[in-house]
Design a protein around this nucleic acid. Sequence first.
DNA 1: GCATGATTGATTTTT
DNA 2: TCAATCATGC
Length: 672
Amino acid sequence: MHVNLTKLLNEEQARAAAQISGPVLIIAGAGSGKTRMLCCRIAHMLQSGVHPKNILALTFTNKAAMEMAHRVRTLVKQPLDDLETSTFHAFGLRILKQYGHLLGYNKNFTIYDSADSISLMKEVLLEENFDVSSVQIKELIHLFSSIKTGRTSWTHDASHSIRGLYDAYRSHMKVYNAVDFDDLLMLPIDLFERYPDVLEIYRNQFTHIMVDEFQDTSFEQYTLVHMIAEKQRNICVVGDDDQSIYSWRGANYKNIELFEKDFPELVEIKLERNYRSTGTILQAANELISHNSMRKEKALWTESDSGNSITMLYPDDEETEIRTVINEMRRLSYERHINWDAFGILVRTNHLIPAIENVCMLESIPISVSGGQSFFERKEIKDTIAYLRVLANPNDDMALLRIINTPRRKIGRVTLQRLRSLAETHHCSLYSAICLLISTDGVEPSNRNESLKSFIGLIDSYRNAILSAGKTKSSILNKLMEEIEYKHFLKLENPENEQIAEWRYKSIETFIRMFSTWEKDDGNEENSLYDYLNKITLHNHEQTDDEQKIHAVSVMTMHAAKGLEFDTVFLLGIEDHIIPHARTIEEHPEAIEEERRLFYVALTRARKLLYISSCKVRKRNREFIHPEPSRFIAEISQHLLQSHKAHIELKKDETVAAFQALKRLLAQKESS
DNA sequence: GCATGATTGATTTTT
DNA sequence: TCAATCATGC
């Protein structure tokens, strides 16, 4: 292994990669070869004798973490099993797994995702007799999250009852032996404060730390990494304040200022040369972002040609919008021999995605959707996972509630209500409440507890089986799903179409197969059920990398597109209530700058061609509205834009001609 | 007391 | 369009 930095990188990049001791702040603009630099930097560390297990690289998404690990391995041609590249949350989980018992958590704790948190909030509200709309529930959860992470304090508008709800929420979590996403960061901080010797272990292990997407780290994430880095001070953070798009989740680009204050001896390096986009795209992006105030001084430049103008589309409605895009993709792939995976379709909100999926399906365009309703969010998969969760941790009430009457076991509203109040008076989980109810049942076997008894029997027997199963857990799960006749339940759910039931059961089989692949992988030494469940909670929104999807058009939200790039990018639904999003602006007028940054991120994903589309009519709820094009479009010089030429849309016979040409091409390829 | 079908109402972004 | 809630039937 020998990596020559100056050969692989430009001057600034090489400087950044070579500076491996002391604190470093790297301001890396969009498309400035940041990932490449980071990978070379790790390679350089290894070359300089730093052991892989002493390196900690924190990223924002699991995808980015895996990508980085992969690229470093290719670069240095070594397996590097000890190299820790992970997200903050995965890192926090790792710490809790090892030392969580010091804080009173059993090792079979469950991670609650936001859906679980919402269900729990509903439960708590029910208990305390509150009638609250779903919007308010989300607000409450957001408030509690801010409180927990110290972003907000109780001082203002904290009524007594709201504090009560917060306490109830937290005590429920404790009873369930559950932690939420915030806990994955806050509990390690708590741990480090209470057990300095544990902190010392981490400080000594991770002598070299890197943080990617630093502009999107939250205060508590920064606190965590600061605690570890404080002593050795070999920490490098990489970010771009113009791409900060997660402030609603607590991201705080002011962390850059904190970092400057905490590590005053730092070296600052700016990467301003853009290798990704054409001059036109870059200029448009620069113009747009210059409308924001309070930016760190930065000027992206490129040596590439100005390239094509940005194409504006003004389709009549949503369907025309997608069909126009499909026509363009067909034309480009035919004229320029472009693969489907060179296209990216980006939207502001998830709910614009299904319509795109449908039309692409009809037109046989292969697409790969990330975000939106993922495999793990399908009802049948969530049910299956809920069964696993209850087996792993019977005190997990949210999972238990999901499955206790699925399939129907004649355990209905009233029974549950009784169980709830029993659980409440004993401060225990529903599972314990059921056990209590059954044991105090006495001699006369009351009919109504029979179904509860058999349910507990089912759970207990499978729990024993799966916890002692070694590498055959998946087959036990399979047996469980057969025993409860889940397939039959699906058929009852879809009486008019048995095919749907079959199809949905197939995804359960797929899940069991995935589970089986995981448990047979020797890399998972511990191979515990808990590990698997935690893994799928944290990797929820991730692509299951099917080979068939590699040559597909990517469809995703602008948030999900961060860090990615495509030759050709289509931005759909660039209308004034969607981006900037009407609700955001209403609630926080200052958030317009973040919306602009989001649009900036979207623009800078494109290498060569960029299309921006704004519909004349869009269906919202049940009515049609006439949206205005996004105000951001007006912030770009008009000479960079060009309207979509009508003749570009292929007429029918042209399409036929195109297909024939394509056919000839394929025949040629085959014969050669 | 529970299951089922009809009505209503709500939709930002993600670890 | 979809999910959660409500009212009614068994």
